[in-house]
Design a binder for these strands. Sequence first.
DNA 1: CCAGACTTTCCATAGCTTATCGAAATACTG
DNA 2: CAGTATTTCGATAAGCTATGGAAAGTCTGG
Lengths: 235, 235
Amino acid sequence: MEAMKTTGATAGRPRLSGSTGESPRQEIIREATALFVAKGYAETTMSEIARSAGLRQSSVYYWFARKEHILQALLEENRGSLQVAEALEPAPGSAAARLYAVLHADAVQLCASPLDFYEFERVARSQPQNFGAFFEDYSELHRLAASIIRQGIDAGELRDVDPEAAATAALSLNEGLQRHYRQPLPGLRTYTADDVSALSADTTLASLLRAPDDLPAVRIEAAALSASVDLSTES
Amino acid sequence: MEAMKTTGATAGRPRLSGSTGESPRQEIIREATALFVAKGYAETTMSEIARSAGLRQSSVYYWFARKEHILQALLEENRGSLQVAEALEPAPGSAAARLYAVLHADAVQLCASPLDFYEFERVARSQPQNFGAFFEDYSELHRLAASIIRQGIDAGELRDVDPEAAATAALSLNEGLQRHYRQPLPGLRTYTADDVSALSADTTLASLLRAPDDLPAVRIEAAALSASVDLSTES
DNA sequence: CCAGACTTTCCATAGCTTATCGAAATACTG
DNA sequence: CAGTATTTCGATAAGCTATGGAAAGTCTGG
């Protein structure tokens, strides 16, 4: 079971719909993602996913034994901001700018992700054995953010706060704001992904910087850092 | 239908369980709340609610035609932080302290609420016609917070930021942090309701204050304001 | 005190969901 | 060309929300 064929060669019983594209696994993930984005995870049924992918409801279970496994597969294709944090935590230079770059990258990724962070978290919590990676990544990101904050405090750039609590607040703000980007509340202004990412990083850094007037300079340095990380990732 | 009896007088067919307490409506809300707190809204079934309340699954539908209506009734019993904002927005004195008091009260309420903010929001979004009050209250709270921020900018207490965006960030931080209080992520420190409320208000005010060193004084003044609002509400 | 109305609960069940199982239909292998 | 591996299908179990009608009481007017 769980064959790993990626080419479109036709083995097994043919579909009633006759459709025959790429790897069924990828096909299902792609269609499911579109439906999750449009309707949310809980409101999307396996029948709808099957119909979109061109097969029957029960056939989807050949590729994914549980609905959560589709979400899991989707999650594994969406790592990223952790890499930025891992690259920047030990890097030289201003801790404030590195923190800004990490938070901004994380917010961008939360906004760009096909699924709401809280939907991931909800499913991850109900299937801890399958989503260990989710929690590990999160706590690693938290640890790295707290470490950068500690560096900033030691260097005198940042106010003398509790690094762990500050990291929790910073990530919470990212998560809370991605929600406002993703699902604008009626009567409130709508924001772009860039808006909320800048708003989040600006707010956190303004709350931590010993000299808030340095914020514009921090932003500029962070932008340079982000660019350098992107380049080094490509190589 | 939908009788309004609140006394425990027994009319109608008796229950198989023989139980006969207060108003069935209140009984159902109380038991459902406990289950929602323990397992979350989506994971709680009408059968479980019925069993806890001492009747059969379908009998619950006599009092609440839809599962969401139980949540709605629960929500209507939990207003509060809006009152603080309405009392303090036009009040005299430091805008920073009033903002701190409003944000702190909102965070405390989010933590004390029987249900996760995002679960409310999710259900409210799926039943907009029944949850209009939810969105109205939220946008009113947002408006009042933005107004206090604007006052603080005009008075020179706060940095010259966009009041609407700052209010969105402040409320987002409250919402994101209540999540960490309510469902601590594995590997991260756990926080009390007071911890996250102070952390949230501290962070927001630190990001907005022109002179972050004033934060301790702002905290003290805010505590006095909160006490005065509580007193005036009781009268 | 009794007939009918009203209130509340129950049982049965429709229709939807996730998930399982065995059979069917094809390609691959020796 | 027989046997095996792969993939899909149909049928169906078990659980969910919600509906409809019958049942079992209390309440009220005559």
